[in-house]
């Protein structure tokens, strides 16, 4: 749910990176954080365990510039991917404006991808959202690994609705900004429609 402030002429939107454990959601945010100008970003907050697994969420505020005199700000969140953190995942989805589903391309993670995708649908529905109506971008991550399955196979499983999709190698940044731009664009387009 975006927040439009006519007084300070700002618009704030919330984007959530979703996906199975260890698929690279936090890595996406870390890459974005490392590659953006200091004046356009805030602090990257990671609530993680001692072994660097996301416990609650990662958070990165980003400014994208102005549209018609309104400053556009995006708040990027990740959810904890591990199955047993489901209660936390639901909380992060509250007020979401756009979703990036990060899939792990490795063949042995196909089941985890599907489980996480179904979980996204269920959790969105619990918050009163329909995944088919939420601006969504699908990212096929870890494309550099030898055991990556064909994109067609991932698409059939995770992107039947034909959302914008990108292949990525998050640690080196391949596809990371393309994904972010695509979801930001979808969110702003949705706002335009809703206006």
């Amino acid at each position: 749910m975006s927040f439009i402030n006519y007084s300070s002429r700002e618009i704030n939107c919330k984007i959530v990176y979703y996906g199975p454990g260890l698929c690279g959601k936090t890595t996406n945010l870390q890459y974005i954080y490392n590659k953006t100008n200091p004046e356009t970003k805030g602090k990257l907050i990671s609530l993680s365990t001692e072994t660097d697994r996301t416990l609650f969420f990662d958070f990165l505020p980003l400014s994208l510039g102005e549209i018609r005199g309104f400053k556009t700000r995006f708040h990027l969140y990740t959810v904890p991917g591990q199955v047993f953190y489901d209660a936390s995942r639901k909380l992060i989805l509250k007020g979401v404006d756009g979703v990036v589903f990060v899939a792990d391309s490795q063949v042995e993670r196909m089941e985890a991808n599907q489980e996480s995708y179904e979980n996204l649908k269920v959790n969105l529905a619990e918050q009163g959202y329909d995944l088919a109506k939420v601006p969504t971008v699908v990212q096929y991550n870890k494309r550099d690994l030898p055991n990556a399955v064909a994109v067609e196979e991932l698409r059939a499983l995770l992107n039947a609705r034909g959302s914008p999709e990108y292949q990525a190698v998050a640690p080196t940044g391949v596809g990371v900004f393309d994904t972010l731009k695509a979801v930001a664009k979808l969110v702003l387009t949705e706002l335009k429609k809703g206006g």
């Binding site: 510039g65 549209i67 018609r68 702003l188 706002l191 335009k192 206006g195």
Partner: peptide, 16 residues
């Protein structure tokens, strides 16, 4: 009126 009702696709593209 929402300030976003009048934005064009170009406005959005320009951000990027």
């Amino acid at each position: 009126a929402s300030p976003f009702a009048e934005i064009s696709d170009d406005d959005i593209d320009n951000l990027f």
